[in-house]
Computed example of a mutant assay.
Amino acid sequence: MMAEQTPEQRLWSAVLAQTLYDMQEIPKPGKIKPRHDGAFPLSVRGWQAYMRSRDFQAMCALAEQDPEYVARVANRILRDRDTGSLVKKYRLTMG
């Protein structure tokens, strides 16, 4: 049985989960349009670079999640992002 997460771990798990949900909103190539505020959404390449960053590693550590597993889930979300909510299909212990 897994130990209950601390409030800080639950917070970082929620941040990580939101990051994965946000990945589902990246438009397919050729369909990228500015958001209502004029900014462009982060691209697939941008997310993939982020997943190699120290910030991503730190976020996973703070959420007590395996960064390699989270990156595999994220890459699958990026590949299949138009198939609905994929985050729920994966066993990430999100608080």
Rank of each mutant, 00 (worst) to 15 (best):
C60R: 02
Q18T: 10
S13I: 00
P34V: 08
D66C: 05
Y69F: 12
Y69Q: 08
R52H: 12
A39Q: 15
A39K: 15
Q65S: 10
A71W: 03
T19C: 10
Q57R: 13
Q65P: 03
D37Q: 05
T19Y: 14
P27I: 07
V87D: 01
T19M: 15
S85K: 09
K31S: 12
L42C: 11
S13V: 00
R72S: 11
L92F: 00
L92Q: 00
V70F: 05
W12Y: 15
G84C: 01
L42P: 12
K33Y: 10
Y50L: 13
V73Y: 03
P7E: 04
P7C: 05
I32D: 10
Q57F: 04
R52C: 08
M94N: 05
R91Y: 04
P41Q: 10
A74S: 08
A17P: 00
M23D: 09
R91S: 04
Y21I: 13
G30F: 12
Q65W: 05
L16R: 06
A3M: 09
G95K: 00
M94I: 14
K88S: 07
Q48Y: 03
A74E: 04
I77Y: 01
Q18Y: 07
S13H: 01
R91C: 01
G38E: 03
L20V: 04
G84D: 00
D80I: 01
E4M: 07
D37R: 07
L92M: 03
I32Y: 08
E4I: 01
R54S: 13
D80E: 14
Q57T: 11
M94W: 01
A58L: 14
W12M: 12
Q5V: 03
M94F: 08
S43R: 01
F56R: 05
R91H: 07
V44Y: 08
R54D: 13
K28I: 08
A63I: 02
T19S: 12
M2V: 08
D80F: 12
M23I: 10
Y21S: 08
K28M: 12
H36G: 13
H36D: 13
P34D: 06
A14P: 02
V70A: 10
Q18M: 11
A39M: 11
M94K: 01
I32V: 15
Y90W: 04
L16T: 08
